[in-house]
Amino acid sequence: MKCPICKKEVKLGDPEMPFCSERCRLIDLGMWSAEEYRIPGPSAESTQKPEDEEDE
């Protein structure tokens, strides 16, 4: 298997699996926290009801 960040080979038993190192693991975490990764789907704005249409 290859590290998703730097593409180095990673063995199944490696402690940072699926990453090759703590550095690559932290880079990936930073990308998630900066919202650089997104799951496709409708935007949050399109799924919310306008305030005047909310159930009372």
Rank of each mutant, 00 (worst) to 15 (best):
L26Y: 07
E22T: 03
E9R: 13
S43I: 09
F19H: 04
I5K: 04
E22P: 00
E54R: 15
D14G: 10
I39G: 06
T47Y: 08
K7N: 11
I27C: 05
W32Y: 06
E45D: 15
D14P: 00
E51Q: 13
Q48M: 15
E53N: 10
Y37W: 08
S46N: 08
D14E: 14
G13R: 08
K7H: 13
K49P: 01
A34E: 10
E51I: 11
P15V: 14
P42W: 10
E56L: 12
C3E: 02
P15A: 07
E54A: 12
E54K: 15
W32A: 00
K11P: 03
D14T: 07
P4F: 06
P15I: 12
T47H: 02
P18Q: 02
Y37K: 07
E51N: 11
A44Y: 07
V10T: 04
A44F: 13
D52H: 15
I27S: 00
R23P: 04
Q48R: 15
A44I: 11
R38D: 09
I27F: 02
E16F: 15
P4K: 03
I5L: 05
V10H: 03
E35F: 05
A34K: 07
E53R: 15
R23T: 01
K8M: 01
F19A: 03
P42R: 08
Y37D: 02
E56M: 14
M31H: 01
D55Q: 13
I27E: 02
A34Q: 13
T47R: 14
M1E: 12
I5S: 07
L26G: 05
D55G: 06
Y37A: 01
F19I: 01
S46P: 04
A34G: 05
C6D: 03
E35P: 01
C24K: 06
W32L: 08
E53W: 11
C20R: 04
R38A: 14
S43Q: 12
A44K: 13
E36I: 00
G41N: 02
F19N: 04
M17E: 01
C6T: 06
S33D: 14
E36N: 11
F19D: 03
E22S: 05
A34D: 06
E16Q: 14
G41W: 04
E45T: 15
D52S: 11
Y37R: 03
K8L: 08
G13W: 02
G30Y: 08
P42N: 08
E36V: 10
C24T: 00
K11F: 11
D52G: 00
P40C: 04
L29C: 03
K7Y: 12
I5D: 01
L12W: 09
S43N: 05
E36H: 14
E35A: 01
E22N: 07
A34T: 06
M17W: 09
R23Y: 01
V10K: 09
K7W: 06
G30V: 05
K11V: 11
K8I: 08
K2G: 00
P40H: 09
A44V: 12
S21D: 06
